[in-house]
Write a protein that binds this DNA or RNA. Structure first.
Length: 577
RNA sequence: UGGGGCGUCGCCAAGUCGGUAAGGCACGGGAUUUUGAUUCCCGCAUCCGUAGGUUCGAGUCCUACCGCCCCAGCCA
């Protein structure tokens, strides 16, 4: 894959540079991308993936893919598979694939240590009671009445929790920190809960499952992660992250992780540093898993990989190349500022990438018949077209040409507005790669709609002849009617018609802002060399935009193309005012 | 009246020990062009949330205010 050079130094890269220079972590760099397998990855995740894998690659370090599968009630194997596929598609490969559930035994051993050290207790309070004891943002909480149980009783109870003696929710294991802390995460947070649920990775081996804060920091330590990168909302979890690691002290108690050795998962435990950065948000889209899930579940879109979805599988199907997403992530930078990137920035990245790497083809998506009257009936020839205007290595292809063509309906106007450079009655225009054609007459149907444009081709303007140098205002694309292949063309537009669909302050929700025209399907005509392409091949259909052969539905004899993005169109912008 | 973050051009984002505002995207103008695309030039913050202060000099230091985001799951 390509390896884009970093645009500039961001604060996390600087921390890594400083750490490496000072010999912290013995100069090692290890990161991880830790998704919970409870949904599909989206563009926001791309930032984390690029950051984590990118840092590891840049500093000669390692990066693991780790499934944060500590809550079996929400997770599913479907997601763990899609996540792996998406990470690879983005262009990254993990050093090791791990699951938090690989460490369930370690978590358990550490919990017994915490209990033995008097740092954790089994609490019998119900969820509601815990909430009541927790206090509020401005009032301190109160100690649980079970906080002072003896070590022996705690150990006994915890072992019985594990043994399955208690019902879901009956008890939790809590850590003793400070119920009066201004940081609510430190008010004796639960680190284990009872869930008699089968786990996608460990089956029925466990009925108690660790909480995120507890499991994540230990997982990081056990994997020797040096820099644990996460998003801003975990900032006030960091004291808990550090507390757990300090109290457990894995580096000095390697026996706690001894069970890993037998499975080849052991490594010297480290002391990872959590560093937070801001999420990648885009306007005109929603990025929360919950909302994306709703769009899918309620059939508001055609699935997680609907081309309008901001999921990685969605943008992939839409035709956005992975390099465009990497470029986006480079371009937006890494900071702690909440930000919303304009969707046009992403589109710009897609255009930039595809302009350089997509072969050109001719296609017409709203056909109007054009007949070249001064060519013989049945006239046919084959023209050689370069596949890329600026890159000869793309080679050339044969394009069939004949007397009857399809041109784009919007490229002809009987009464043109000022500044219109295309075909008009009595006017001239260049047919791309063919020569200059003059509109001599029109055919119309009963409604007055133009059905055919009759032209004459100036034979002196064919390519290669001196007359080809003659300037005309416009050049339009075309496709030979006789040779064209009918295709299904899916035209996509933004899913939401407001910049911030998450904003429900006016009483409306994202569901009220769905763009009814976000998907239009038309029948168009392709030159043969476009139809005959493998699924996921991206082309620029000249003057129209970048299109991709649908990953699943496209076939050479029944082509289906999705429009990834239009070309920049200064005429449309100007003529619209 | 809690805790944790963040405020530099429309959107992002650099700004080393204080020395007199990078870059990208967008936008405006021009050149080239058999894609009104691409490419190429040129322009685009006397000002860094606000108000004071320190200093020869402050986006960078101090003080006070203002604004925005996150936290009260046995979710991650």
């Amino acid at each position: 894959m390509t390896n884009e050079a970093p645009l500039h130094n961001h604060f996390i890269r600087q921390i890594v540079i400083d750490d490496q220079a000072s010999g912290k972590h013995a100069g090692r760099v290890a990161t991880r991308f830790p998704p919970e397998p409870n949904g599909y990855l989206h563009i926001g995740h791309a930032k984390s993936i690029c950051l984590n894998f990118g840092i590891a690659r840049e500093f000669g370090g390692r990066c693991n893919l780790r499934f944060d599968d500590t809550n079996p009630t929400k997770e599913d194997i479907e997601y763990v598979e899609s996540i792996q596929q998406d990470v690879r598609w983005l262009g990254f490969e993990w050093d090791e694939l791990r699951h938090a559930s690989d460490y369930f035994d370690v978590f358990y051993q550490c919990a017994e240590k915490l209990i033995t050290d008097g740092k954790a207790f089994v609490c019998d309070l119900s969820a509601d009671e815990v909430r009541a004891y927790r206090g509020t943002l401005t009032e301190p909480g109160r100690n649980s009445p079970f906080r002072e149980r003896s070590v022996d009783e705690n150990l006994d109870l915890f072992r019985r929790m594990r043994a399955g003696e208690f019902a879901d929710g009956a008890r939790t294991l809590r850590v003793k920190i400070d119920m009066s802390s201004g940081n609510i995460n430190l008010r004796d947070p639960a680190i284990y809960r009872i869930r008699h649920v089968e786990h996608q990775n460990t089956g029925n081996a466990w009925c108690i499952y660790p909480m995120y804060d507890y499991a994540h920091c230990i997982s990081d330590a056990v994997e020797g992660i040096t820099h644990s990168l996460c998003t801003l909302e975990f900032e006030d979890h960091r004291p808990l992250y550090d507390w757990c690691l300090r109290e457990i002290d894995l580096p000095h108690h390697p026996q706690l992780a001894a069970s890993l050795a037998a499975r080849g998962l052991d490594a010297p435990a480290g002391t990872p540093q959590q560093i937070e950065f801001s999420r990648l948000n885009l306007d005109y889209t929603v990025m929360s898993k919950r909302k994306l899930m709703t769009l899918v579940d309620e059939n508001l879109v055609a699935g997680w990989d609907d081309p309008r979805m901001p999921t990685l599988s969605g943008v992939r199907r839409r035709g956005f190349p992975p390099a465009a997403l990497r470029l986006l992530c480079d371009r937006v930078g890494v900071t702690k500022q909440n930000s919303v990137i304009e969707f046009s920035v992403l589109e710009g990245c897609v255009r930039e990438e595809l302009d350089a790497n997509a072969a050109r083809r001719l296609a017409v998506i709203d056909p109007l018949r054009l007949v070249i009257d001064n060519l013989a009936d049945g006239h046919e020839e084959t023209l050689a077209f370069p596949n890329h205007p600026k890159n000869e290595s793309f080679g050339k292809r044969d394009v069939p040409f004949s007397r009857e063509l399809w041109i784009e309906r919007e490229d002809f106007m009987e009464v043109p507005p000022k500044g219109f450079h295309r075909l008009v009655p009595g006017g001239e225009v260049r047919l791309r790669g063919v020569g200059i054609v003059k509109c001599e007459s029109l055919d119309k149907d009963a409604d007055g709609t133009v059905t055919t444009v009759h032209c004459t081709l100036d034979p002196d303007t064919r390519p290669g002849l001196p007359g080809a140098e003659r300037k005309v205002k416009g050049t339009i694309h075309w496709v030979s009617a006789k040779h064209a292949v009918a295709a299904e063309i899916r035209l996509y537009d933004r899913l939401f018609n407001v910049a911030n669909p998450d904003d429900d302050s006016d009483g409306k929700t994202y569901r009220d802002h769905l763009n009814p025209d976000s998907r239009r399907v038309v029948q168009g005509w392709l030159e043969p060399a476009a139809a005959d392409a493998a699924p996921e091949t991206a082309f620029q259909f000249e003057r129209l935009g970048f299109f991709v052969a649908d990953r699943y539905d496209h076939a050479a004899d029944k082509p289906v193309f999705n429009r990834a993005v239009t070309l920049r169109d200064s005429w449309a912008k100007a003529s619209k005012g």
